[in-house]
Computed example of a mutant assay.
Amino acid sequence: MSRPGLDTNPLELTPDWFNQLFETIGVDAEVQALTAKAIGTGQIGENVRFVFDYARKGEGAPATLVGKFPSGSDASLMTAKLLGHYEREVMVYRTFPKVAGRITPAALYADYDPDTNRFALIMEDMAPAEQGDQLAGCSVADAERAMDAAAILHAAYWMDEALDTYSWLQNTKLAPPPAIGPEAVVTLWAGFKDRYGAHLTPDVVEVGDAYADALPRFPEERPGPFALIHNDYRLDNMLFGKPGAPKSLAVVDWQTAGKGAPANDVAYFIGAGLTREDRPKHEQALLRYYHARLEAEGVRGYSFDQLYEDYCLNCFYGMSVAFGAAMLVKQTERGDQMFLTMLRRHAAQARDNDALRLLP
C-alpha cells in the first residue's frame, strides 16, 4: 500500500488505495470510483475531502472521508519542520486514545516520515459540522461545549508524568528547547508594533509592553498543575456539530500540542472566543462551568481560586500568539484582522482581570 502525503499527490489517490486501507482496518466495502477536492485554505497543512462511489458498500463504510497532508508552500514546509508540527499532530492521534476520537475526528490512518517530514491523516468527515469563527466569536452555549471538551482533554492526562517521555511533545523534559525563545518573542512584539502601530490603542500597547518586559523573567517551569494541552485552543480549530450529532464538538489542528498549564487553553479560548462585550458578562460563569466539568472527569485538589489565578496569568499567552503569528506567517487581510482582534481581546482580558499584577 502506498503512503499518501508521503509518496503520492493526495488529490490523485485511487480507489485501490482506499480498498487496501479498508481491508486493513476491517471496513467491508469496495470503492469503484472517488472524487477528491481540496477544502479550506490551511497555512500549515492541506485538507482534502474524498467522496466514494462504491461497487459494494457494507455496514459502516463511510460516504466521505477527510485527509490532511503537508502544505504545498515551501515556507510552510520549512516552518513545520522547524517546529515539529507534522510529527506532533500524527503522534497525538497515535498516542492519546483518551482524547483522540473522543474530542477529535476519528482517525483511520496516521502516518509520518521523519526523513522527508511528510505526513498523512485520514479522518472521519465531520460535515455538516460548522467551523467556529474567530472574528465573530461564539455563543455562551458553544463556549460551554468548548469547556466540556477542554475538561475532557485536561483530565485525561492530568499530572501524568508519562508526558515527559515524549520528545516530540512540546515542553516535556525530553523535548528540545523552543525554537522561538523569550528574546525572539520580545523582538516579534517590537516588529508588530512597527507594522501595526496605527491600529493599536495606548491601552493595548501598555499591556503588550508590560508582558514583553517581563517575559525574560518568567521561570522555565511555572507552578501549578500540568496536563496535555492543545496550545491553539480557539474557534477556528473547532467543528461544532448540529443538534443531535454523535459528536457535538471536534477539536482539530493538534500541531502545537504540549505539556502545560490547563488554564492556558481556557484563557486562550475565553479571551479570544468571546467578544469584548460578551466576555466580561460570562467569564466567571464559564470558568466555574469548566471547573465543575474537571471535577466531573475525576480531577481533585484543584480549587477554583487556583484556577482563576492560573487563568489570569495565562491571559498573556493569547497576545503572544497573536503578534507572533502575525509576524511569522504570510500576511493576509483576514489574517491582519484576526490577529489584531485577538490581540485587543486578550489585552482587555488581562486588564479586566488585573493580570499585570502577576507578571514577574
Results as ranks from 00 to 15, higher is better:
Ile39Gln: 14
Ala155Lys: 05
Ala322Pro: 04
Asp352Phe: 11
Glu333Thr: 14
Gly67Phe: 11
Tyr317Met: 06
Gln134Phe: 07
Leu239Thr: 02
His282Ile: 03
Arg234Gly: 00
Glu297Leu: 04
Ala29Met: 08
Leu135Val: 12
Ala151Asp: 02
Ala190Thr: 14
Ala129Leu: 12
Thr172Ala: 01
Met123Gly: 08
Ala38Met: 13
Met123Arg: 06
Ala175Pro: 10
Ser303Gln: 05
Leu274Pro: 00
Ala29Gly: 09
Phe50Cys: 02
Trp189Tyr: 12
Thr275Ile: 04
Val186Ala: 14
Val66Ala: 11
Phe52Ala: 03
Ala325His: 11
Gln306Val: 07
Arg334Tyr: 12
Gly191Tyr: 01
Asp133Val: 08
His346Tyr: 05
Pro15Ile: 03
Ile180Val: 15
Leu249Lys: 00
Asp232Phe: 04
Thr35Glu: 14
Leu294Asp: 00
Arg217Thr: 11
Asp133Pro: 08
His85Asp: 04
Ser73Met: 06
Ala143Lys: 00
Lys98Tyr: 08
Glu161Thr: 14
Trp158Leu: 06
Glu277Thr: 12
Trp254Thr: 02
Arg88Tyr: 09
Gly324Asn: 03
Pro202Leu: 01
Phe323Gly: 00
Tyr157Met: 02
Ala120Glu: 08
Ala322Cys: 05
Met327Pro: 05
Glu183Ser: 13
Ala292Ile: 04
Ala296Phe: 10
Asp53Lys: 15
Tyr157Cys: 04
Ala29Ile: 08
Val205Trp: 01
Val90Ala: 04
Met147Trp: 06
Ala212Cys: 07
Leu359Arg: 08
Lys57Pro: 10
Ala179Phe: 11
Trp254Ile: 05
Leu13Met: 15
Asn117Cys: 13
Arg357Ala: 15
Gly244His: 11
Phe52Cys: 07
Pro182Tyr: 05
Lys57Leu: 07
Val92Met: 15
Val185His: 13
Asp111Ser: 14
Tyr308Trp: 13
Ala63Ser: 14
Leu135Phe: 12
Tyr86Lys: 06
Val266Lys: 00
Val48Thr: 10
Lys68Ile: 10
Asp28Gly: 10
Gly137Val: 00
Trp168Cys: 02
Ser303Cys: 04
Met319His: 07
Ile270Ala: 02
Asp232Trp: 02
Glu221Cys: 06
Gly258Met: 09
Leu188Ile: 09
Gly324Phe: 03
Leu153Ala: 05
Gly324Cys: 03
Phe119Leu: 09
Ala272Gly: 15
Arg118Lys: 15
Tyr290Glu: 00
Asp160Tyr: 11
Leu34Tyr: 03
Thr41Ala: 15
Tyr54Cys: 03
Thr172Gln: 01
Gln255Gly: 00
